[in-house]
């Protein structure tokens, strides 16, 4: 049996006196799209940051394709194939949207200053960046600076940049937030089309209708604990989920 693309085991995180995560776990297979839902403050972003190596858990383990990556730092994890589109957008404001994405295509040049020094051309990376930006609907504004476009565009830039890293596991933290209804639908379609052999996606979203529409599997978290995990219809039928996540109605 091939190991799961991502396997998170028994992860706990403490922020001072607050247990942000308590023994949570989940698994994502290859070519999968997992929806990750839960109320505000459930610890969703924190779990993404643990997987990415930004937050250190007090216990637990993160495995990528059967390899324990718990000891790697975030740069090593990125080059191992994990990428994160953050909830709070962090564009590099001094460069165009195009260069924001082109930089992420830098690969090994970003690991070695000497290699970086030996290469001048950005042409290939910019071409690839242009293609991804037009995939996420930013084809018309590639040369704009981040401050010249609305937040919705920056959310898409965040996704484009994460994709440019060429991940095997793509983590997206609320990529639909800030988009209009039709835009959110388009973005959800785009995300639904991403998984393929060699790429799995975890989608954190508050836009429940879109999540239910595009995600075949769900993971639900509340108050730092895993609540449910499985096929979307089964999970949504569980009383505990309806109670915790939907505030008990129905």
């Amino acid at each position: 049996m091939t190991p799961a693309r991502l396997s998170v085991n028994d992860v706990s995180v403490r922020f001072g006196g607050l247990m942000a995560l308590e023994g949570v776990g989940l698994e994502v297979g290859d070519n999968q799209l997992l929806g990750f839902i839960g109320p505000n403050g459930a610890g969703k972003t924190t779990l993404m940051r643990v997987i990415m190596g930004i937050v250190q858990p007090v216990s637990g383990q993160v495995m990528l394709d059967g390899q324990d990556i718990s000891k790697l730092n975030s740069v090593q994890r990125i080059h191992a194939g994990v990428a994160l589109g953050q909830q709070i957008v962090k564009p590099l404001r001094a460069m165009s949207l195009l260069d924001n994405v082109a930089l992420a295509f830098g690969g090994s040049k970003l690991l070695s200053p000497l290699r970086a020094l030996s290469v001048r051309s950005r042409a290939t990376e910019r071409e690839a960046a242009r293609a991804i930006l037009s995939d996420v609907g930013l084809g018309a504004v590639t040369d704009k600076l981040p401050n010249e476009v609305p937040l919705g565009y920056l959310k898409r830039l965040e996704v484009a940049r994460a994709l440019a890293l060429g991940p095997r596991l793509l983590l997206l933290d609320e990529p639909l937030a800030g988009l209009s209804k039709p835009e959110a639908g388009e973005m959800a379609d785009l995300i639904a089309g991403l998984p393929r052999p060699g790429l799995s996606v975890v989608l954190i979203e508050h836009n429940l209708p879109q999540v239910l529409r595009v995600c075949p599997h769900l993971y639900v978290q509340a108050n730092g604990r895993g609540l449910a995990f499985g096929p979307t219809d089964d999970v949504m039928a569980m009383p505990a989920v309806r109670k915790a996540y939907l505030g008990g109605e129905g």
């Binding site: 962090k90 970003l110 070695s112 940049r161």
Partner: peptide, 11 residues
Amino acid sequence: TARLLGIHVPR
């Protein structure tokens, strides 16, 4: 952010 783009910042 540089780190999250895969840049080895210390080097």
